[in-house]
Amino acid sequence: MATVVSLEGKRKSPSLEPLLALCTDDMARVDREIVARMRSQVPLIPELANHLVGAGGKRMRPLLTVAAARLCGYSEASDRHIKLATCVEFIHSATLLHDDVVDVSALRRGKPTANTVYGDKASVLVGDFLFTRAFELMVEVGSLDVLGVLSNASSTIAEGEVLQLVSQRDISTPEATYLEIIKAKTAKLFAAAAEVGAMVAGRNGPERVALQSFGMNLGIAFQLVDDALDYSGREAKLGKSVGDDFREGKITLPVILAFLRGGAVDREFWKRTIEKLDQRPGDLEQAYSLIERHGALADTLERARHYGAMARDALGLFPGTPLKAALLEAVDFAIDRAH
């Protein structure tokens, strides 16, 4: 097997723990709201939903909502920020259920995917259920502006998924199109999650713009690292089968860069394995080798650091507090998963 670019670090990795510690009470309320809103008289719905939502995960998106609200001084006794955070988690979970069906994925967060356990039809329908629950929560919050942001995010995510679908196995996909896809399918919800936190706190000026920018750039960095990790050979770290993107013919930045920088023989390899999906024993190892040889993995991570720096800069207008410091460390955490 080819040697893979080492993503191991020698220093203590940044963590989400400081941010989670500062938002412990809010996130406990979010968890309770999630459980309550997954209830249904149809037993399969909470069972399947809990298979995904209850499987753990970092809950970064709802965490961004409650953290952004607190950063903007939210101190109401009401649960509007909790409902919005729950809404964000349900939108995310619904898209995951649908994505796993489209991608024919078998593993998520180290567990069999819902579609593997319950079937495609049930997964799609329960995803629809979670979307409807999300919109119920938006309406209960009672803000048309918030409804506009989150409904726009939902439609943008769907557009991103369709764009990814039509770009699948197209090895000539330019980097600009790839960035458009990840902005839509991943970063848009990060941006909306942070933005509505500012909105529920009544900050509709520079703070709202800053947090939207923070979330967008964090989301781009997060997805870039995910796409790099899929070629890192570290399944335990990623929580899914490494090489899935390759096997599915998914066009991600490491592949785009390796294709553009390779010679005729290399390009024929990518056309066979990605466009024609004619994959043979040893092809994944060859893909690792080409991605390493052309510096594609290292440059993908360098781009992630670039967007991470922009996310950190976006918080510059906020005063120095433990919460701001924890959000900055969350950016480092998103990127340093690759170390």
Rank of each mutant, 00 (worst) to 15 (best):
M1R: 11
T3Y: 07
T3C: 03
V4W: 04
S6E: 05
L7E: 09
S13E: 10
L16E: 04
L16W: 09
E17I: 14
E17A: 15
P18C: 12
L22P: 02
L22M: 11
D25Q: 14
D31E: 15
R39F: 04
S40P: 12
V42K: 03
I45Q: 05
E47V: 09
A49G: 11
N50A: 06
L52E: 01
A55N: 13
G56K: 13
G57L: 08
G57H: 11
M60W: 00
T65R: 04
A67G: 01
A69S: 13
G73I: 03
Y74F: 15
R80C: 04
I82W: 04
I82P: 02
F90G: 00
I91L: 14
A94E: 05
A94K: 13
K111G: 03
A114F: 05
N115D: 14
V117F: 08
Y118H: 12
K121I: 02
A122G: 00
S123Y: 03
F135V: 05
F135C: 04
V139F: 10
D145N: 09
L147E: 08
G148M: 12
S151G: 11
S155R: 15
S155Q: 12
I157V: 13
E161T: 07
E161A: 11
Q164L: 03
V166P: 00
Q168Y: 02
T173G: 09
A176D: 09
Y178G: 09
I181H: 05
A184T: 02
T186G: 04
A191C: 08
A192H: 00
A192I: 00
A192K: 05
E195W: 04
V196T: 02
M199I: 08
G202S: 13
R203D: 03
G205C: 00
G205R: 14
A210H: 08
L211I: 00
Q212Y: 10
S213C: 11
S213Q: 12
F214L: 06
F214I: 02
G215V: 02
G215K: 05
N217A: 08
N217L: 10
F222N: 06
L224M: 05
D227W: 09
A228T: 07
G239T: 01
G243I: 00
D245L: 05
K250M: 06
I251F: 06
V255N: 01
V255E: 00
I256H: 10
L257I: 13
A258N: 08
R261F: 07
W270C: 01
D278A: 15
D283N: 13
L284D: 01
L284A: 05
E285F: 02
A287G: 10
Y288R: 06
L290R: 13
L290G: 07
E292G: 07
R293N: 03
D299M: 15
D299G: 04
L301Q: 00
L301V: 15
Y307P: 00
A309V: 05
A311H: 04
F318Q: 08
P319R: 14
T321I: 09
P322H: 12
P322Q: 12
L323Q: 01
L328V: 12
V331P: 10
D332K: 10
A334P: 02
